[in-house]
Amino acid sequence: MEIKLIQVTKSFSGKQVIYPTSLKIEHGSFTTLLGPSGCGKTTLLRMIAGLETPDTGEIWFDERCVFSKERNVNVPPEDRHLAFVFQDFALWPHMTVFENVAFGLRARKNTVELDERVHNALRTVRLEGYEKRYPHQLSGGQQQRVAFARAVAVKPGCILFDEPLSALDALLRVEMRRELTELTSSMGITAVFVTHDQTEAMSMSDRIAVMNVGHVEQYDSPETIYHKPSSEFVARFVGRSNWLSETELFRPEVATMTPIEGALRYDLPVENVQYLGDTYELALPYMSETWTIHSGQKVVPGQELSIYIDPKNVISF
C-alpha cells in the first residue's frame, strides 16, 4: 500500500506540532520517521492511523482518500484497515494471546478459518503453544511478538510501529530489529516505523524521514542521509560528526593516520582514549570542538597525532 500525505498540519491547543508536510511512502517499503522526542513523528504516525485528526491537508492510501479537510473526508481508524504496534504493546489484559490476535479478525467479521489464521500468525513470530496464556504471563519480548502477530494476522496494507522496541532490553532489541524487517519484507507489507534511535533507523529502513520540530528535514535512503546530510540538524542527529568549520564536517571513519596525497593534515594532541574492544576511540580537541576518531593502535593521552582527511570526504553545506 502506498501512503501519501499532502500538506498535512496539526496543532495542539495553539502549539503547532506539524508544519505543512508532504510525504510519499512507497508500497512494500520499510520507512522510518526518525527524530528527537517532541519532533512530531508519533503525531504523524497517529494521523495516518486516524487516531489524530489533521488540521489541514489530505491523506491517501493508494487511490483511496482517507482524510481530506477540503472534501470533509475523515475515515475513522476502524475503517482504515491498518495495523498498529504500540510502544506499550497495548495488549488487552483480559484476553488470552489467542483472543488478542483474533480480535482484529473478529471485529471485522472476518472469521473464516479463524483458528488457522491465528495459529499461522503466532507461528510466524514463533509463539506456538502460547495461545491460552494471558499477556501478563509473558516476557517483554514475547508480548512484543504477540503485538506483532496481532498486526500480521489481519493482513493489513500497512503496519504502523510506534517505538515498539523501546520497552525491550538492549540484546532483545537487536534481535527484534532483524526479525521485524525480515517478517515485513517477506510478507511484502508496507511498514512505517517511528523511533528516536538512529541505529535502529539506519539498520532497518529502506528510507528514513528525519524530522525536526514539525518538519521533515530530509527523506532519503540511510546511506544518503549519512553521507550527504542535507542540513546541519540531520548531520548532527545521524552519525558522529567532526566539525572543521561551521559549515564543514567529516565522519570519524574517513580520518586516517597515514599520509594520503592531497589530504588535509591536522596535528592534534590526544585528550582522551577509550578502548572499545575492536578499536580505540580517541577524543581530539580542535578549536572549540572535540573530534572523535578511531584508531587500531593504542595511543596515550597527551600524545600528538597527525590526522589526514581526503577533501572529497568532507561534507559541507
Binding site: 492511523a49 486516524g50 487516531l51 475513522p76 481508524p77 476502524e78 475503517d79 482504515r80 484497515h81 491498518l82 495495523a83 498498529f84 504500540f86 497495548a90 488487552w92 480480535f103 482484529g104 471485529a107 471485522r108 496481532r150 489481519v154 504502523l160
Partner: peptide
Amino acid sequence: ESAAVFGAG
C-alpha cells in the same frame, strides 16, 4: 486505540 485500529467501532 488499538481496538479501533484493528477494526472495532
